[in-house]
Design a protein around this nucleic acid. Structure first.
Length: 373
RNA sequence: GCGGAAUUGGUGAAGUGGUUAACACGCCGGAUUGUGGCUCCGGUAUGCGUGGGUUCGAUCCCCACAUUUCGCC
């Protein structure tokens, strides 16, 4: 039941990697996109629908499940897999991102991070050890170290101190980790600074984690900065371990960062955009609520094999989103996830054929080409 | 038939004798990155039932008409 990774090849002209994850008798290819199921559900989708998108790993969130329903309840249920009826691999975030999104600087101490329970006001302390304990109780397959995700822009001195703390926290978490059919990743931080990224990566590698995440991205940075943060990190990570770029899911960014040596990605965007009425297409993102789709009786994408495109029209989905029917959000979520999974399928094919650069060129030309119908 | 009240954008409605007629919904766009699904940001009445009048100036005051509505015969 332990997740194992095998690197199959590296693309001839770039750092793009083709790999395979083995889990529970099944294998999943990388590069891979992971849909996000913060509260033990990929919003609006059943596990059967998740599997139909052919995505592999699902991400769940330590912080949210700690507060509700509480990790002891999920442990009593027999773990996350049984609780949510999903037998594919599950990755849990450590709560580190909530440090960024919920805590103020003065709430962050060497011991851990002080939160206020947003539902009942209770004072909470999340520490590296506590995060590992919660994730072990949740029974996810891939665990994240508790880190500090620094928002940008951030001064060099702050990032430098933060990296040292993230490293100490990584060590503390690893020291209490039981390795019970679970694997643990370290998270590379360091903001946009090359030497800090390198230092953080090298120190984490010395600690010998089962895989490595690149964090501090998807905090509102521009694309060039994001790509640099990845370029400053991947060269120092071992070839035989998974690399996970946290929170990145813009279609273009998936292509660009695979080329820079990333294996797995997660992002809320396919499901959040869906709830707000947006759909990915080969020719860019569309807003299904736009007037022109009211009477458009064609699928979102003729060439898409997802349940939504096989059975429903833009006019129908537009109506559902306008009237706030949840089925609309569900159909768009299915499409958007399947879209990103199909994109990864295309990327893997391009890696196999050693033509990822021309794949990128074609993809960008279409996506930004302005031909939207 | 007689008397009263009302008439503001697609809708519900504020409002004042004096530059750009509130607000909400809807509508038209946009945003969304290790997810609270709660959202956020723009745009959207050249006109205040119709015709006259008073006034330097009227959506606001006066008259007539139309429509709606309430009460009485």
């Amino acid at each position: 039941m332990t997740v194992e990774f095998k690197l199959l090849k590296t693309e001839a002209n770039t750092k793009a990697r083709l790999g395979k994850i083995m889990y529970n008798g099944k294998s999943y290819e990388t590069p891979m996109f992971m849909p996000v199921g913060t509260q033990a559900t990929v919003k609006t989708l059943s596990p059967e629908e998740i599997k139909e998108t052919k995505s592999g790993i699902v991400l769940a969130n330590t912080y949210h499940l700690w507060l509700r329903p509480g990790e002891e309840i999920i442990k009593s249920a027999g773990g996350l897999h049984k609780f949510m009826n999903y037998d594919g691999p599950i990755l849990t975030d450590s709560g580190g991102f909530q440090v960024f999104s919920l805590a103020r600087p003065k709430d962050i101490t060497e011991s851990g991070v002080h939160f206020k329970n947003q539902y009942n006001g209770d004072a909470l302390l999340l520490t590296p050890e506590k995060s590992i304990q919660i994730q072990e109780d949740l029974g996810s397959d891939i665990l994240m170290s508790f880190d500090e995700c620094v928002g940008l822009p951030a001064p060099y001195e702050y990032c430098a101190r933060s990296v040292e703390r993230t490293l100490r926290w990584a060590k503390r978490g690893k020291d209490v980790f039981h390795h019970n059919n679970q694997i643990l990743f370290g998270i590379v931080q360091g903001g946009p600074y090359e030497d800090l990224r390198r230092h953080c990566a090298e120190e984490l590698v010395k600690m010998d984690f089962d895989g490595y995440s690149i964090g501090g991205t998807s905090v509102g940075e521009d694309k060039e900065t994001q790509y640099k943060m990845v370029e400053y990190s991947t060269p120092y990570l071992p070839e035989d371990k998974l690399r996970y770029l946290m929170g990145v899911g813009d279609p273009i960014d998936l292509v660009e960062n695979v080329i820079r040596g990333v294996d797995i990605f997660d992002c809320v965007s396919p499901t959040r955009l869906a709830r707000h009425g947006h759909a990915y297409t080969k020719y860019g993102k569309i807003n299904i609520k736009n007037n022109k789709y009211k009477t458009d009786f064609t699928p979102i994408e003729e060439s898409c094999d997802c349940y939504a495109c096989q059975n429903y029209t833009k006019a129908y989905i537009s109506h559902l989103i306008r009237t706030e029917e949840t089925f609309g959000a569900r159909l768009l979520s299915i499409h958007n996830i399947r879209y990103l999974v199909r994109l990864m399928e295309g990327i893997r094919e391009a890696i196999k054929n050693d033509n990822i650069l021309s794949f990128r060129e074609d993809f960008i030309k279409n996506y930004y080409g302005g031909k939207n119908d």
